Simulated assay, not measured.
Amino acid sequence: MEKCKNEHSQSNQDIIEFIRGLYKTEGFIPLHEPRLAGNEKKYLLECIDSTFVSSVGKFVDQFESMIFDFTGARHAIATVNGTAALHVALKLVGVDAGDEVITQPLSFIATCNAISYCNAKPIFVDVDVDSMGMSPKSLRNFLSANTRQNLGVCVNIATGKKIAAVVPMHTFGLPCRIEEIEEICKEFNIPLVEDAAESLGSYVNGRHTGTFGRIGALSFNGNKTITTGGGGMIITNDPSLARRAKHITTTAKLPHPYEFIHDEVGYNYRLPNINAALGCAQMESLLSILRGKRELASEYENYFLEKNINFAEEIDGSHSNYWLNAIILEGRMQRDSFLKDLNDAGVMCRPIWRLMNNLKMFSNCQKADLSNAEWLEDRVVNIPSSSRIP
């Protein structure tokens, strides 16, 4: 046991030195920091000078246009953050109080929070080990064994509740098997809502993540591939969903020169112009950022292959943005040793999220066999992933 610990400690020291060499610094290395190397200051000053710093202004429209041009979606609606985008996306496909939504347990808390904001309840199916995203096999098995069709609506036999949506998440920017999931959702008459918060710049067979379902959600938090400080985006090819998304994210206010008339309960979820200004500048640098991230991932992949450590790669047919690089260690003991050694040395690393079904808020939710998610929870570590561009 002591020999094993010493071997791990030496291996961890080698990894620390390798990562410091990649980033050419002896100082603190964050997990992921934004790259603000373009027109960010220029556009922010322009926004300030215009006095249009809230949710009205040219940069909001421009940022939306840049996103739908890049992703290939027909419509994009900017929101204050990715959670707000996902919340509204769920509302738009008809998720109501008392409904159930199938998702994956291996995800950031925002996925389940957005479901909860609708007063709906998550159901957890397993993930695939290679993609770390929702497993089509687990999804199909659950639906086949536990649901029935009632006048074109998928109903949970055990609870009598409507299965109102399926929400897969593209973990760390690694696309899941979204095409298979899309087909299953069509077969069982369930709307597909993509949590693409982490996958701007990720594709499956040439098609951008977030565009496979009826609607998708992106995030531009400070640690994402590009950032608006805080911010999100709803993307869809459905013009009616897009119109309604813009309406309810702007407090459901009817157009009028001066009267305040609202026709339903809405949300104050529109992205401020000052944040969108930052996003426009970031979009101008996106291709360079993505190139830098793939180069970094390639160097990690080659290094960890020599050390016989599994580096999380994109699956066949997919193209990842490699937002957060991840390695898969032997077990929880090696994982914990790795995390302590690297963080103590000022090289920020973190474990994958606690499984959602193990959090007290969601501990009583229905679940499938989650063996893959449980296996990954014990082993996956994120390592520094900032794009190395000037």
Rank of each mutant, 00 (worst) to 15 (best):
V166T: 05
I389Q: 00
H32C: 11
K246I: 08
H87V: 08
R244T: 13
V56G: 09
E179D: 15
I215F: 02
N325G: 09
G57I: 05
L359S: 15
C280W: 08
K253I: 14
E183V: 15
S138I: 13
F108D: 15
G213R: 04
A368R: 04
G292Q: 00
V88K: 00
R388N: 08
L342D: 01
L376N: 00
E264A: 04
G160Q: 06
T211A: 04
I190C: 01
I109R: 05
D14T: 15
A114F: 02
N119G: 07
I352N: 09
F212K: 04
C112E: 08
G266V: 08
I352P: 01
I389R: 00
F212H: 05
K24Y: 07
E198C: 10
E374T: 12
E187W: 07
I235W: 02
I115F: 07
D344F: 02
M283S: 03
L271S: 07
N81C: 14
E377G: 05
N223G: 11
P136I: 04
S202I: 05
G201F: 08
N364I: 14
K91G: 15
E314I: 12
H319K: 09
S11W: 09
E33P: 07
I15L: 07
V380R: 05
K24S: 14
N382A: 10
R35P: 00
H247L: 10
D344A: 10
Y269R: 03
M132H: 06
E64V: 11
G133H: 01
N302A: 13
I115Y: 01
A120V: 03
T111A: 12
I327M: 06
A276G: 08
F311A: 03
P272D: 13
S285R: 12
Q104C: 12
S9K: 11
E46I: 10
E182K: 13
I102F: 02
A110D: 15
K360H: 13
A85N: 10
L200A: 07
A110V: 13
L192F: 03
E180I: 09
R332S: 15
A114I: 07
K41Q: 13
S135D: 11
L376P: 06
E2Q: 14
Y267H: 14
K360R: 14
T71W: 02
V93N: 03
E314D: 12
K162A: 00
P351R: 03
E33I: 09
L241F: 08
M132T: 09
V380A: 03
V193A: 03
V204I: 12
A245F: 05
V125P: 01
L290N: 00
P191W: 01
L376R: 06
F63R: 00
W323R: 05
W353P: 15
P351L: 02
S387L: 02
V265C: 11
S107C: 13
D61E: 15
P34H: 05
